[in-house]
Design a binder for these strands. Sequence first.
DNA 1: GCGCGGAATGTAAGCGCTTACATAATTCTC
DNA 2: GAGAATTATGTAAGCGCTTACATTCCGCGC
Lengths: 346, 346
Amino acid sequence: MPEETPIRPAEPPKLEDVATLAGVSTATVSRCLNAPDQVAEKTRARVQDAVRTLGYAPNFGAQALAAKRTNTFGAVVPTMDNAIFAGALQAFQEELEKNGITLLVAASTYSRDLEEDKIRTLIARGADALLLIGHDRKEECYELLTRRGIPYIVTWAHDPTKPHRSVGFDNKVAMRALANKVLDLGHQRIGMITAETKENDRARGRLEGVRAAMADHGLNSADLSSVETQYTAPAGAQAFRNLMELNPRPTVVMCGNDVMAAGALRAAADMGLKVPQDVSVTGFDDIDLAEIVTPALTTIHVPDQGMGRHAARVLIAARNEDTPIEKETLETTIKWRSSLGPPPTQ
Amino acid sequence: MPEETPIRPAEPPKLEDVATLAGVSTATVSRCLNAPDQVAEKTRARVQDAVRTLGYAPNFGAQALAAKRTNTFGAVVPTMDNAIFAGALQAFQEELEKNGITLLVAASTYSRDLEEDKIRTLIARGADALLLIGHDRKEECYELLTRRGIPYIVTWAHDPTKPHRSVGFDNKVAMRALANKVLDLGHQRIGMITAETKENDRARGRLEGVRAAMADHGLNSADLSSVETQYTAPAGAQAFRNLMELNPRPTVVMCGNDVMAAGALRAAADMGLKVPQDVSVTGFDDIDLAEIVTPALTTIHVPDQGMGRHAARVLIAARNEDTPIEKETLETTIKWRSSLGPPPTQ
DNA sequence: GCGCGGAATGTAAGCGCTTACATAATTCTC
DNA sequence: GAGAATTATGTAAGCGCTTACATTCCGCGC
């Protein structure tokens, strides 16, 4: 009578199997994998052979449990489907991957409560370190992170007064520079479409940037016509229509991001307004879309990849040893394209 | 002399702490969390209190190790920064979240080798189940998955001949339907811009769909002018220009996806061609962009959210018990917008 | 009141790894 | 070439959970 051999999943090889095959102890195999230079070259070669022939891969749970480290970093971004954060995350994750770290991404959909939730989840999953967007969030989040000793870094913003690691750019400075250029062109009436500013320091900074530029040009920043709306193209379109109903109407509409600017462009086309002849439009972020729309969007290029890469390096260092809190500012640049021109000559 | 109290991270509470506080054994606490109905109501309440006051969250590694299940699913998509898969992943992940499952996403950048790599990584991370895009991939991947007994599901495609769980739509049928409508409008010369077809069954299906429609209309499908290029707007723009140099030139350009179609639209504008008066353009996917570009894109809406949600349900069921392989087909619909019109009347 | 059966709970053995510590092997010093 | 210093390896104790199995509890029929 043949042995009963039910079809069932093959068990993956374990450290012990490798150790047996290589004729060493499990400790040596473990060292080969985690601290190769502590092992004699000959032994190491033998172990590596065994690893290869067995197709061994460490069991994640066991490793995490024993080492008290998961080699997993987390990132909480406001949203995943608007391409803004994709570039940064991509670079972040590539850099992590080089170091054998896996990235877990969660979206907060621009909600503080949800963000706290996601941060907690990531911590429960054992994230070794966290990447966050902007400074605005519940104080509990920072407390929790600090209490647990989990390093984190704030990106997409810059605020020297905050006691957090950060790598980003100054939203206000960037927008102010663009607005100053706009005003230099002769525009007198700026309309602004901004994302919700309440829980979003980036949006606030951008709005303030426009105001500051107006002040720079001797204008009363209280005269700024701004519409606050959601982060979508249709919302941008609607906001644009509202702005165009003003009398006198703005000669330029500056948008807090490219998506809303694309909506504005769309609305302009639908209203028969030529951009930039009748009205100029600017964006912020320089996502792919900015080049695709007609006319192409004048916008601010943000160093997304640079932020991602740098954030990864800082966090890896912080996890491995005690590093001081550092704050890095990266440059933004103005992308001149055709949606911005001088104001119409009455 | 005061006790030395160095500042250092607080250790998170563990199961045992909860058990002590609630005055029960660790087994009971564990059961409260994983199989509540096996525990008397009074005990359960007591335990839940303890969990709450301690802010307890299970240690992921320990749980994975002991239960041989990570409550993590994986997804390997060709790319993350083109918004196509975002909707599906979003829905997939929401459905998973309801069941306490975390999603790990990896991108293969349309490379088979990289895809295999990512699949292996996900398995090593202990993914309980996997979501994949399309059927085309290395045979080793399927073998590995099967050998390990890890359930997986193929999305974004439909092929009844394949022995895999799947939820998707028939790319060929969908494109054929649109192409038939195009031909019904009177177009005689179709230009096609397709993504690389070599390792991409979705792209192939879409191309075949156009050919089939031509045959349906008594045209010789070999006469189709098609350009194969990369999945980007600039590539689409270039391909469009090439197509427009043909003589006689196509009266309609059908694109394998919306991103390339947006590029085509851009090129048309740059060339001074009016869409759809001079030439029509169609897309595929119905991403947000399709509504934003000018003119808005006639395209095929794919049931991305539906696929994501359904895939999650199927995979959860498959992980929990032995379920048979099932294949679900969802409907696509044609989105009529302004980029498609009748051919120019010579 | 006794014994029975099922429900509720406890006991304890791992899950597969890392790592402090002990031990063995090698190299160096003079 | 003996002993110290150094390097390479082995031993074994957990890491924080789950779960098979053992035990206790309780209500019930008679």
